[in-house]
Design a protein around this nucleic acid. Structure first.
Length: 572
RNA sequence: GCGGCUGUAGUCUAGCGGUUAGGACUGAAGCUUCCCAAGCUUUAAGCCCGGGUUCAAAUCCCGGCAGCCGCACCA
């Protein structure tokens, strides 16, 4: 299919449109229209149902803007930027760190100045035309802003929602009653100043993420419900090229997937993908190549969907190790560790050098305190068996005899230990998921368009029509509509044009069923209810409508009690 | 960011220096005992923005913006 056809449907029917259109637009920014907003909400609600309600992770809403140190610590300030050198002759720009490959161990880690010097010293020229290059210039993908007036602080728009959860680890940990694993989730906007956004909503500069950060003991990366799913076989594409028709348990035991927790969230992501209506035949989990991983990741699997643009990454499930928490611990000085009790308090036996102050005092006078401190800092093995130790204090060397210190054994009881938790992060791109859901639901038959959205995803759950807006059919139809809306079901009333046109309008936006009030309704209180995909109709009582629509929306069957009446069942 | 192509109602499109800028679908109002985009009447809605050339620009030129395709990029 041509993605332009789908994007034109999206514009026409109020799913998506380019933002700021009357001012010429702004590349990389889209508006969600009325139906797009409903669909986006449905995707997010279902994700929340899985991650918050079922898995018990804690939802946060953190600010979009963060002060510079946050991204200094996370590595985004340095690693989230590329350096470019432009050719003065042909104008082509090149990745400056790539040009220095082989000239330095790790060109990407250099500053602009250092890299520029290396390129100059080695007389590196433009690979395209051999022209002279400009000095490297750093382009950071984060949007920068300033916070406050006057001596304003530098702030950045978050490039992922994740950092807000890492910096809140102590609060999350406490809220989770100090047990691991514990996790936080966040649904919100993130910003990346992409160099060339394109392909509709697949690469936006402002986009929505649904992220979970799940904190683990480094040696126990498993999940309580893993056992329930361990025999499932998912479409895995490991990075060693082996096609893996393995169950999750086999994949973990053969090290194809690093741990059970990662495997569980791959399963959960698969379930989510199926629930929102992605085609099972057009999704897969691809393991990142070693050189493909983000600066923080130790292991990563992507959920990819096949679209008109090729295989597109919708979800990244990464084992971030302790990278982020460790980084914030180091930069902020805050205690971001978790504590684990030992089963039994353990005796921790340690040796240390203990100065004998009474022996030292007379000999070293005012230097005693400083000398004692130096001695305590020494490793026991350094002093053991020595008759004297030479210690330097204030540029003066002192020979301290062994009578002035001893090696003592200290036994302490430890109830447990502190450690920096590891993080497994499922990170979902809402806009890409939404696009893929639409594309996988897109059906075109003789110019008749239908979105076969699943009931839980459909922006409108039911269309309600009078066959004709007269003879009290319109009044009854409005009553049916009111009942549905009162039940919290999004419905759409339409009395204009022919009945076929109204069905078509609903089919095109993926409404799973339509209820029509006709002459017979006036006589016996029954209505027809029509199924979008089969176009079959059933005749049911007005009082059954809510129950029927609910059942259709749940998506398991085309209606209760055996579903729609087919031509076969009618006997013709 | 570089190069190529493109920009006409909500959507698809005709136009190729002088047009009241035409059509189709869609939308709206109405008619039609109307169950799968039927028909009829009425109606709304457009030359991406800015400059230039010309007596005259949707049309030619330049710049910007946006879209598509390649390259690069996608932490």
């Amino acid at each position: 299919m041509d993605p332009q056809e789908l994007l034109s449907l999206c514009r026409r029917r109020g799913f998506l449109w380019p933002a700021y259109d009357i001012y010429g637009g702004l590349a990389g920014f889209y508006d969600y229209g009325p139906l797009g907003s409903l669909l986006k909400n449905n995707i997010e609600s279902h994700w929340r149902k899985l991650y918050v309600f079922e898995e018990g992770l804690h939802e946060l809403v953190c600010p979009i803007i963060a002060p510079e140190p946050v991204f200094k610590a996370s590595g985004h300030l340095d690693a989230f930027a590329d350096m470019y050198a432009e050719c003065r002759q042909c104008g082509e720009s090149h990745r400056a760190d790539h040009l220095a490959d082989g000239l330095h161990e790790n060109p990407a880690a250099l500053s602009e100045e250092e890299l520029g010097r290396i390129l100059e010293e080695n007389a590196v020229k433009c690979p395209a035309c051999k022209g002279d290059l400009s000095p490297p210039r750093r382009f950071n993908l984060m949007f920068k802003t300033s916070v406050g007036a006057g001596s304003a602080k530098a702030g950045y728009m978050r490039p992922e929602t994740a950092q807000g959860m890492f910096v809140n680890f102590p609060q999350i940990y406490r809220h989770g009653r100090e047990k691991l694993p514990v996790g936080a989730v966040q649904i919100g906007r993130a910003f990346r100043n992409e160099i060339s956004p394109r392909q509709g909503v697949l690469r936006l500069r402002e986009f929505s993420q649904m992220e979970a950060e799940v904190f683990f003991h480094p040696e126990r990366k498993t999940w309580p419900r893993f056992d329930k799913v361990k025999h499932e076989v998912l479409p895995l594409v490991p990075n060693d090229g082996s096609p893996a028709a393995l169950s999750l348990a086999e994949a973990v035991s053969s090290k194809v997937i690093a741990n059970e927790a990662l495997a569980y969230f791959i399963w959960l992501t698969h379930r989510f993908a199926i629930d929102v209506g992605l085609d099972p035949e057009r999704i897969r989990f691809r393991q990142h190549e070693k050189d493909e991983m983000a600066h923080y990741a130790a292991e990563c699997w992507d959920l990819e969907a096949e679209t008109a643009y090729g295989w597109v990454e919708l979800v990244g499930i990464a084992d971030r190790g302790c990278y982020d928490v460790q980084a914030h611990l180091k930069h902020s000085g805050a205690d971001l560790t978790a504590f684990e009790r030992f089963d039994e308090p353990r005796e921790v036996v340690s040796e240390e050098v203990k100065p004998k102050y009474d022996a030292m005092g007379g000999q070293f006078k005012g230097k005693t305190k400083a000398l004692a401190e130096r001695l305590s800092a020494l490793a026991p093995d350094v002093v053991r068996g020595k008759s004297e130790i030479v210690v330097e204090v204030d540029d003066e060397r002192f020979a301290v005899p062994s009578t002035c210190f001893e090696v003592v054994t200290r036994t302490e009881k430890a109830a447990g230990e502190k450690f920096v938790p590891h993080v497994i992060e499922p990170s979902y791109g809402v806009d890409r998921i939404l696009y893929s859901v639409l594309e996988h639901a897109y059906r075109k038959k003789d110019d008749y368009l239908t979105l076969t959205l699943r009931g839980i995803m459909a922006p409108i759950k039911a269309g309600v029509f009078p066959l004709m807006p007269k003879d009290s059919m319109d009044r009854i139809a409005l009553e049916v509509y009111d009942v549905l809306v009162a039940e919290g079901i999004s419905a759409h009333y339409d009395e204009s044009g022919s009945i076929g046109r109204r069905y078509a309008r609903m089919d095109e936006v993926g409404t799973p069923c339509c209820i029509t009030v006709d002459h017979q309704t006036v006589e016996d209180g029954t209505v027809t209810i029509r199924d979008r995909d089969s176009k079959e109709q059933a005749r049911i009582g007005v009082d059954e409508v809510v129950r029927w629509v609910r059942s259709v929306v749940k998506g398991d069957s085309p209606g209760p009690d055996g579903g729609f009446e087919t031509a076969e069942k009618r006997g013709n």
